[in-house]
Design a protein around this nucleic acid. Structure first.
Lengths: 335, 335
DNA sequence: TTGTAAGCGTTATCAA
DNA sequence: TTGATAACGCTTACAA
């Protein structure tokens, strides 16, 4: 429980000044070879490591990245975080994590905390649609002060960085694959309405119906929330219809798993009796049987870009704010 | 992009000294009501927040908790982390996360980094059996200097805190439930041998066989690794046996999902044709169909205890090092 | 090549 | 009740 060593202790034992110790520590400045050797061996002897907090204070740079997200338990977020952390590590940065857990007050509170802790930048992943006034004000206040990167999220009127998947391209690719195989009775379980990603996909689906690519059946579009339970329930509803769909799209993989569960329950074989596709390519979709065909984010590049924007000190003064990455069709067993 | 405000700026504008500003900030010391008001209104005006790094340096206390774990994408770890973070937040602590991603060198490196960053304490969750010499040395070096809490993990010869589930009680409870229902042909897919949790469960299973509670069939104990793929493969092997087991135990839920997949593939109904149980109660086990009966950790209390040990400055000088929490039988559809 | 000293932004001690 | 000042542990001008 003894006090930590400091550069003063090392300097004293080596009979030099702290400045010289610091020079050895950062081996940038010129130090005589034998002085360096003497100091280095004392450093090694005690395995001395400089206090990063003091360093951060002096340099006004913590090499800390804060990450605000709804729930790390959700594989979509944990995959992004894993990739971000991997890349941050390579660059000497450490990640701090903040789970808002669906409480919209937490967003503002965490944002505040991270700024007070002088993080270099913040990765922000929204999930709920609720935006408090306070959050909005804080983002406005900080948007020019430190890099805030929203991944697959954006907010009206806020000029933060935005790193996103091209969900339009991704979803169109999915509809295309379905159309290409000649299916016309296609249902969409849309989850929670009113948030941007849902509305985008719903309108693309409706456009396909309007264009006559899919048959028009109002009962084939069901909304609710983003959960396995909802997927099961809505799927049961579809299965009780006089004309069953040939393909059911879960607007995300979580819902697709619910759809799959309902099929198992009704002893339907997938993909023989009915086909299922999802969206997001969370690891869950590859783990169930049959594995789910889906559209995948480029998790690695999304995360790397976000970290890059935080690390690169010149990013804030550049004009570019939005970075879009293509999505990928991942063919598995369910379609 | 302008410089952050400091207590000096506030003091200057209020015409007082920084000491008084600091007193208002921490409202402990006595400050005249009208001085306080004047200062507070300037603080409010700029929404001034003190620099936490400077605070940490002075107080020699960062209120940071580091968490080292194999892979946040694994729901077991993310659930613990979620609970820990929730409780840390309530106490003004922030979590840092370090994914070792199966690279045993990373454990030592992250441990080092966290200590340099002066975290208040470290939560450590191992996963691989590989322990480097270096890691062992570092743990020995730091075990008395700051609280290091291992959750469901321990290391020979290391005197860190150990917060654990009573896996013996949990697994016995599982075997009991199976025996109580009168099943005697019970298989165990054991995953990776050689690590403590596996060996414990295998020996409890073997003891049940020796006692004649379960029938002795060597082919019913298969080892491999902790993955869905292994679970499927091993289950297929079981299904090709002349006498199929009535119940198959996955040593964890991941493997149990693989077992379930193999059943779906073979068009077997669960639990009608064959029963499945898992272990850990990760969220995955409740999401598949049929949902998997399992033994659950007390995630909340494990995490809270770990955080408590870090927060409580007196814990290190106390003698108690091991804290055990009972596990829970969670009855679902697969058994 | 090395040392002295100032400064990073706080808080706490001591004196006024 | 308030202010001056040292201290936390480091780095970097600047001087020697």
């Amino acid at each position: 429980m003894r006090r930590n060593l400091t550069v003063y202790d090392i300097a004293a034992e080596a009979g030099v000044s702290v400045a010289t110790v610091s020079r050895v520590l950062n081996n940038n400045d010129k130090v005589a070879e034998n002085t360096r050797y003497k100091i280095q061996s004392i450093i090694d002897k005690y395995d001395f490591k400089p206090n990063e907090v003091a360093r951060s204070l002096f340099k006004n740079e913590t090499k800390l990245i804060g990450c605000i997200l709804p729930d790390i338990t959700n594989p979509y977020y944990s995959t992004v975080l894993l990739e971000a952390e991997k890349y941050a590590l390579m660059n000497g940065y450490t990640m701090m994590i903040c789970n808002t857990r669906g409480d919209s007050d937490n967003y503002a509170m965490y944002l505040q905390t991270l700024v007070e802790r002088q993080v270099t930048g913040i990765i922000y992943m929204g999930g709920e649609s609720v935006e408090t006034m306070q959050l909005h004000q804080l983002l406005k206040k900080y948007e020019d002060r430190l890099p805030i990167v929203m991944i697959n999220w954006s907010m009206q009127d806020i000029n933060c960085f935005c790193v996103q998947s091209d969900e339009e391209q991704g979803f169109l690719m999915l509809l295309d694959q379905i159309a290409k195989e000649g299916y016309r009775d296609v249902a969409l379980l849309a989850g929670k309405r009113g948030v941007m990603p849902t509305e985008l996909k719903v309108s693309l689906y409706q456009e396909a119906v309007r264009k006559g690519i899919f048959n028009e059946r109002e009962e084939y579009l069901i909304d609710g929330e983003f959960s396995v339970e909802y997927g099961m329930k809505a799927m049961k509803q579809l299965l009780s219809l006089p004309v069953r769909p040939e393909v059911v799209i879960g607007i995300n993989d979580i819902i697709a798993v619910g759809i799959l569960n309902a099929c198992h329950m009704h002893k339907l074989s997938v993909p023989e009796d009915i086909k299922i596709v999802g969206f997001d390519n969370i690891n869950l979709s590859s783990v169930v049987y049959p594995s789910i065909t889906t559209i995948g984010h480029d998790y690695e590049n999304l995360a790397r870009k976000a970290v890059d924007l935080i690390i690169d000190k010149t990013a804030l003064v550049k004009r570019e704010r939005i970075f879009t990455f293509p999505m990928e069709y991942i063919c598995r067993e369910s379609f």
